[in-house]
Design a protein around this nucleic acid. Structure first.
Length: 325
DNA sequence: ATAACGCCCTGTGTGC
DNA sequence: TGCACACAGGGCGTTA
């Protein structure tokens, strides 16, 4: 299940192999992965024909190719999506959904392969955002600071020198409501802390809420909470700043380690852009370890049903709060 | 307004 | 053997 590190691995592959390529053929083999392109399949095909890829950018788990038409090809991998660059004569994958023929680049074609089809592709318009564009790893230049905030929220001091041009501070419309991600150097932790204080919810729900902080999914949420020794249902409004800082450090560290490994793979559904399966060799401390010994204290890891999915935690290191959510 | 629930989708594994 | 069902879960529409 691709989360931020896995999507970033894919982004890097796309940036390396696709920038400068022109899309000259589009084939949609299944309608569902294109469902978020509201104007329909024919329009999707038409908008991609003849456009050239300028850049590959990511925020959280969303990934997009900036196109010379001014639009973007937006991708979300969902649970089982893959973007593969394959030789055109390579046999079709069983779950091949969309094929993009390319010229002027690597000579390969881009394939969107997705078994469960929670993910998808769409050609979307770009919009200016108040938080200064995609930022983060591989985004537009992010060495300048711009007031960070979501629409309608208070913004700190005004623009400081070094900001990049407003024209570059564009983000796909469907991504505009997503917060900066955990590895984005422009993530506004003060703002995040303020929003967490106002929230009446549990810590893991907040970590999974992509409008607060993006890129974290079920696996990295459990891993980071285990490292921080925090229970998933702890109320967010009582989280003090040092604890939040430690938790964010743990989120970043677990993601950086995964990134260094080239992404994680747990059920071999995830494959990177070149078809190589990534694997988090170091393994996991909490996720999927029900009944196994905690790597810190030896207590059996527990699994609880939560938000229609599973939460794994050590009942000793991460004691259940009295008023948990 | 916020918070939480339910649905989508397919393949795999398990139990009867 | 075959069937039913639980499970994996991100995002979004709906409900409370």
């Amino acid at each position: 299940m691709p989360e931020l590190p896995e999507v970033e691995v894919v982004r890097r592959g796309l940036a390396r192999w696709m920038i400068g390529s022109t899309i000259d053929q589009v084939e949609v083999l299944h309608p569902r992965p294109v469902r978020r392109h509201e104007a329909g399949i024919d329009d999707f095909v038409q908008r991609l024909a003849g456009v050239t890829v300028l850049d590959a950018v990511r925020r959280g788990k969303f990934l997009w190719l900036n196109l010379d038409s001014g639009e973007a090809l937006l991708a979300h991998l969902g649970m089982s999506g893959q973007l593969l660059l394959e030789e055109p004569d390579a046999p079709d994958e069983k779950h091949l959904r969309v094929r993009l023929g390319l010229r002027g680049g690597s000579g390969r074609e881009l394939r969107f392969v997705d078994q469960r089809m929670f993910g998808g592709l769409a050609v979307v318009e770009m919009v200016k955002t108040p938080d200064g564009g995609p930022g983060g790893l591989g985004g537009v230049p992010s060495d300048g600071e711009i007031p960070v905030g979501l629409p309608g929220e208070p913004v700190g001091e005004g623009p400081v020198e070094g900001e990049y041009a407003a024209e570059e501070a564009l983000i796909p419309v469907p991504v505009a409501h997503i917060a900066r991600d955990a590895l984005d150097p422009l993530l506004d932790v003060d703002l995040l802390a303020a929003r967490l204080r106002r929230r009446e919810t549990g810590l893991k729900r907040a970590l999974l809420d992509q409008t607060l902080i993006s890129g974290i999914g079920n696996i990295y949420a459990d891993e980071a909470l285990w490292r921080a020794k925090l229970h998933y249902s702890r109320p967010t409004e009582k989280l003090n700043r040092p604890t939040l800082n430690r938790l964010l450090d743990d989120v970043r560290n677990v993601m950086r380690e995964a990134l260094a490994q080239g992404g994680t793979s747990f059920d071999s559904l995830y494959v990177d852009v070149n078809g190589q399966s990534g694997y988090f060799e170091r393994g996991l401390d909490a996720y999927g370890r029900e009944g196994e010994a905690c790597h810190r204290c030896g207590t059996q890891i527990r699994r609880e049903s939560f938000m229609n999915r599973s939460s794994f935690f050590c009942p000793k290191c991460q004691p259940t709060p009295r008023n948990g959510r």
